[in-house]
Amino acid sequence: MLGTYGMFLVSGLAVGALYALGGVGLVILNRATGVLNFAYGAIGAVGAMTAWQVLEWHLPEPLAWAAAMGVSLALSLGFGLLVAPQLAHREPVIKAVATLGFALCLLGLMNLIWMVTSRKLGLFSDSLGFSIIGVRINGTRLIALAGGVTATIAMGIYLSRTRTGLLMRALADNREVAAILGVPVRRVEAIAWGISGVLAGFTGLLFGGLVRLDPAVLTFLVIPVIATTIIGRLKSIPVTFVAGLLIGVTESMLTLVKPLAPFRVAAPFVIATLALMWLQRGRRLTFAGED
């Protein structure tokens, strides 16, 4: 029986790694710019579809990876530089729902360019891999896990050791004050949009390979991914990463609880809600202001 639990644990970690990677990218952007990007999934989906197209043209695979991240970088940066500043004066929720508009644009665009049909994205890493306790883990999942860990550590170092990182933290803490103190807001924000775009492309590519290459599915996967960022309070990258893994494992383990098995996809939402209630326990908010 331990073996069965182990299998589901490992399987859950593999999916959790994807949630975690997505969550980390969302938090990085939110910290620096105050924007929760609902279009994150769509930006990644465009990257994944681009990679599929490159492979379809029989071009080498490294080019597909580069194209995925390049296209996502361009889209994220484009939105961040051209559209986001126009929303800078609005409250965070409005900024967030505006990105839903961007997600719809991208989804419509993808469906126009690539007729809706079933596709598969095959990556070199799919055929690599090894087995632990009866579950085979392929290379793509390992890349997801390693990518998540690397992004978490690298961003930690970046934010604490570099000057731009410092500026980003200043922006996250108090934008108005940071601007008055001479933080080059636009430049720092652009860097954050860029980093998050590359991560979106990378994540989209892995999701496309491991989950499904379907623009609509990839676009709306952002909603369970947001659950991980809630547990990280939209700020903490390591907590978000761990939350992603935890959610993936819980979702997978629920398969063993028969009456709940069909509902297990709701796990991210339920866990996030409970976690939030617990985090907020004993907190009272008496004065109107920011969160």
Partner: peptide
């Protein structure tokens, strides 16, 4: 206990 984006996201979780 909450407001703003945070509360909005809790309600989004419930919708999900």
């Amino acid at each position: 206990r909450m407001r703003g984006l945070y509360l909005a996201l809790v309600t989004l979780m419930i919708a999900g």
